[in-house]
Design a protein around this nucleic acid. Structure first.
Lengths: 230, 230
DNA sequence: CGCTGTCTTGATTTATGTCAATATCAGTGG
DNA sequence: CCACTGATATTGACATAAATCAAGACAGCG
């Protein structure tokens, strides 16, 4: 990947979007772009990642695994998302494992370069604080979903989160999950079976229709309602 | 509370421990010290807290509640802990409700003062980044506990987390939970009943003995083992 | 046209929650 | 100091959501 393209890409990340061109060039120069095949491990839980990771292409799965083999997908990172920032400011081994779900391209920016940038640029530091805060909020809403909602509610929540915020009045809405159903189920802390059954039940009730990899939301209003009650 | 005492207190918070005296005085001058009775609400979820909160005395419960009345305790904050920092960098309503578990004394430092300090002091910004990162890690380990462990494992985990890290070889270890059993259960996302039964079962197995509010760990080794298996 | 992996569907089990009754404790005021 | 009172804990019987186990259906792909 040519340097100019990488710079452009980094400029589009929320975290870097306000940095002057020169700083971006610095970051890009220090970054290593690496390719990972489907299934390849970026780092394991317990290891120290060597910097901050930005997904250029593909999809990276962040997950926790217990010694009994259970797995919880914490997040699925697509192009334009970054992770492992927190590890640069808090010198501990990673609690999560990062693995490529499909062939992926990732830029790794060494921690010392980011730290340097923070020292140089106060607005960047503020940006980073906002980024970590956003992640914290996201994690709390995950916690809320997992602890306080039934499996059906979680499935409906996942569906609704795929609906673009610009609400096209009552037109039928086509949605496609950003990963295989199995992975989405793990993300919601459900077994694939339970997930499948929930979708089936919603289809029975006439709230959605499933068409291959796509799901059509037939009645957004009622779907939301359904989430409230049950 | 006299100003000098407040300054001393703030200096002991990990977040502020390296600030020069003058800056601490600034923070202390801007802080409002407020008292809350048992059960009083500091802020509700959905509200915008007015700054960062530091617990001086007492105990504050941070919790999520669903519309169905279920409650999940995210954290219990004792003296020396602070919360709601993230909200200053990310302008959103709080996802959690903060409520005093007992009569408590809290210092509230307005957000703009903290932001100002970050602009002034780069090491402080770094401190804040480390603090948020630590909280992020803590939250992830919570997620791990909740999703990947059985109720028994969570109870054992809670017991072990109360054991001081300096391992007195095989002396009997006395532990007391930092809150009522009901609250601890909510923290572990269990019903009080399940929590009680788990403790009972451990006592049956001869791993612990319960003595009023204290719990005696009879066999640390075997308790840890028990956590692995079941 | 098979084959490997993903998804669905059904029967069964189990951990944990719910409901209800009792027991225990902690604080208050006589 | 003791007896009331409300909160907190325990214990038991029962209900249930979701996991597990086990087939089968249906892709997509060489």
């Amino acid at each position: 990947m040519p340097a100019s393209e990488l710079i452009e890409f980094l400029a589009r990340l929320p975290l870097f979007s306000e940095l002057p061109k020169a700083d971006l060039a610095n970051l890009a120069a220090a970054a290593h772009v690496r390719e990972f095949d489907r299934g390849a491990i970026l780092f394991l839980s317990g290891e120290m990642p060597d910097g901050m990771y930005c997904v250029l292409e593909g999809q990276i799965k962040l997950s926790l695994t217990s010694r009994t083999g259970l797995e919880k997908v914490v997040d699925l990172m697509g192009p334009g998302r970054s992770f492992a920032e927190a590890l640069m400011f808090y010198d501990r081994p990673s609690p999560v494992t990062a693995q490529a779900v499909k062939k992926s391209l990732v830029a790794v920016i060494p921690g010392r370069v980011i730290i340097g940038e923070i020292q140089r640029s106060e607005p960047f530091a503020r940006r980073m604080l906002a980024g970590l805060s956003a992640r914290l909020h996201h994690l709390i809403s995950d916690l809320e979903m997992l602890c306080l909602q039934s499996s059906m509610q979680r499935v409906i929540g996942a569906l609704l989160s795929e609906v673009p915020p610009s609400i096209p009045p009552d037109a039928e809405i086509r949605v496609r999950f950003p990963a295989s159903k199995g992975l989405i189920a793990l993300r919601l802390n459900l077994t694939p079976e339970t997930f499948s059954r929930a979708l089936h039940e919603l289809a029975e009730a006439g709230l959605i229709a499933t068409e291959g990899k796509e799901i059509i939301i037939l009645d957004l209003q009622r779907l939301k309602q359904h989430g409230q009650l049950c």
